[in-house]
Amino acid sequence: MQSDSIDVRYVARLARIALTDEEVDRFSEQLGDLLHHVDALSELDTNIVAATAQVVESRNVTRSDERRPSLDRETVLEQAPRRQGNFFRVPRIIAE
């Protein structure tokens, strides 16, 4: 595994978090340090081991196709950072 190296700028871009240069440096160091610690996992022999996504063994937990009350539109829209009429308004979407 790519030991304790992390491209903080790339990852911050993916995560949509603006960082100052100072933050980039600090996080690179702190996260590199953490990655160094987690590298300990490479000592474990995990080749033939199944991955655990969940510790509960339940399967097929579904709901019947029945309606439940929706929220009142005003309750929802009055908390919108910006609304226009009955819509949520967002700044220009640049097709990225």
Partner: peptide
């Protein structure tokens, strides 16, 4: 009748932002 993961109606042409709940928002 309802959405994939919540009980809001799955219908076309409803008033904007009326078929919404904590899950689908």
């Amino acid at each position: 009748q309802t959405k994939m993961f919540c009980g809001c109606p799955n219908e076309f042409g409803a008033e904007p932002n009326t078929n919404v709940c904590p899950v689908c928002l």
